[in-house]
Design a protein around this nucleic acid. Structure first.
Length: 415
DNA sequence: CGAGACCGGGTAACTAGCCT
DNA sequence: AGGCTAGTTACCCGGTCTCG
């Protein structure tokens, strides 16, 4: 008797197909048939790392003693029990390591964590996800969501007007039914025939993260038998902080997530509320001082590795870029250029962007001129280059060491 | 000889510039 | 103004190398 995939999963107490396909966005169409091919499972088991094998043995209650090879042999006889782990392995692809480790540290027992540890700071993420799956499979959905906050940039926004904090706190307000109602009302008002799907509210580091999936632009997929028309999904993450007085927004579209955030805030505060892009002023003098320090820096936390300058002192005043792709500091090179040709960093207005080297990553900074003010700028940086923890320490570093408030290059507008 | 470290290529996310 | 393309960068996978 042959069982369907859904039946096999049910017999194992594993998640149903809809969980994998809809919640984790994994394509299952050919997975089951492929996994049943001769030798497929054997080959998959062979490719497991020692750490993954150890976690699998723990999860399946197999003898954890002996060589990795002998444990792989006993795994090969398990068959169906391994099926969900094939999917977890597939799920682990392209998931942020930092998101997985961070989450695992919160839910896994110490000895399990140690089994997955590669060295002081590194873990086998697939092994961690095997353990997380076994511990509580619905957590994979959380990992799927948390993964997103490390990979995408966020627009920093704050409430336009001062509002009194309501009696009940924001957390109580953010009930799924309430959020769904507000999303429905928004979709109706928008009238573009697309629906906003409420996916999750997660409390993370004191922030309230609201995850929404919405159809964005029309798209199509090719399948055997023809084309299927639909929409490309977009993930909207509203990261509320400070009792909803501030929100960080990650999304593809520009105005829709802002409107949704406005509606949620209006619902919570009980009056019409709007968020606006946060802007923090830095004066030209501060930036000049910052650049002076930066270009002298030969080693340290923050190194200058690229400058792009408009109206250069070269003939015809073209745009120039001085960059070191290997991320060695370019302070001396700039000094050499200025001595030989002329000044380039003295006019902040002419600086299109710079790149600094921070925690082994190249981070762009732009100095955005404040409309109508002569020497006022908003300093913005490409936050998606850094993960969520690194962003915080980068912002702290620039504020504490250089007195410069930095914001993300991401912004959201009403249309 | 097998398990784990190392490295090259691929993938994803974002930016800037061009075109409609 | 919006969409598409090419360029940039980090991270991840999988094959190869190395060490016990």
């Amino acid at each position: 008797m042959t069982q369907t995939f859904a039946e096999v999963m049910e017999r194992l107490g594993a998640p149903p197909p809809a969980f994998w396909e809809n919640d984790l966005e994994m394509g299952l169409e050919h997975f089951f048939a492929r996994s049943r091919r001769d030798g497929f499972m054997d080959e998959w088991v062979s490719r497991r790392t020692g750490r993954q094998v150890n976690v699998l043995c723990m999860n399946l209650g197999l003898d954890g003693a002996g060589s990795v090879r002998s444990k792989k042999d006993s795994l090969r006889s398990c068959d169906d029990e391994l099926l969900p782990y094939l999917l977890v392995d597939q799920f682990a692809k392209y998931k942020s390591k930092i998101a997985t480790i961070d989450f695992a540290k919160g839910v896994l027992a110490d000895d399990v964590l140690e089994t997955c540890r590669k060295n002081e700071e590194d873990f086998d993420t697939t092994a961690l996800l095997f353990a997380i799956y076994h511990n509580s499979w619905s957590d994979l959905r959380l990992v799927f969501h948390l993964d997103k906050i490390h990979k995408s940039g966020f627009a920093r926004m704050k409430l336009k007007d001062m509002v009194r904090r309501p009696r009940r706190n924001f957390e109580e307000f953010l009930q799924p039914e309430t959020v769904k109602e507000i999303l429905d009302a928004f979709d109706k008002a928008k009238g573009d025939g697309r629906t906003s799907e409420f996916k999750n509210v997660v409390i993370h580091n004191g922030h309230h993260l609201v995850f929404i999936r919405r159809a964005e632009r029309p798209d199509l997929v090719l399948r055997a038998g023809g084309v299927v028309h639909g929409y490309r999904p977009e993930w909207i993450i509203l990261d509320f902080a400070d009792g909803a007085k501030r929100v960080n927004i990650s999304s593809v579209s520009v105005s829709i997530p802002l409107e949704i955030a406005n509606r949620l805030a209006s619902g919570y505060f009980g009056r019409s509320c709007e968020y606006e892009n946060e802007s923090k002023v830095t004066y030209a003098k501060q930036l000049e001082r910052f650049l002076d320090i930066l270009r002298k820096q030969k080693t340290g936390e923050l190194l200058l590795v690229e400058v792009v300058v408009l109206n250069s002192p070269l003939e015809g005043s073209p745009k120039i870029k001085i960059t070191d792709p290997d991320s060695h500091p370019i302070g001396d090179a700039i000094g050499h250029f200025e001595k030989a040709v002329g000044g380039i960093l003295s006019e902040i207005e002419n600086i299109e962007s710079i790149k600094v080297y921070y925690r082994k990553k190249r981070v762009s900074l732009i100095f955005e001129k404040v409309e109508g003010a002569d020497d006022e700028y908003v300093v913005r940086y490409s936050d998606h280059r850094l993960n969520a923890m690194e962003r915080r320490s980068f912002e702290d570093h620039l504020r504490d060491v250089h007195g410069i408030p930095v914001l993300s290059t991401e912004k959201r507008f009403k249309r």
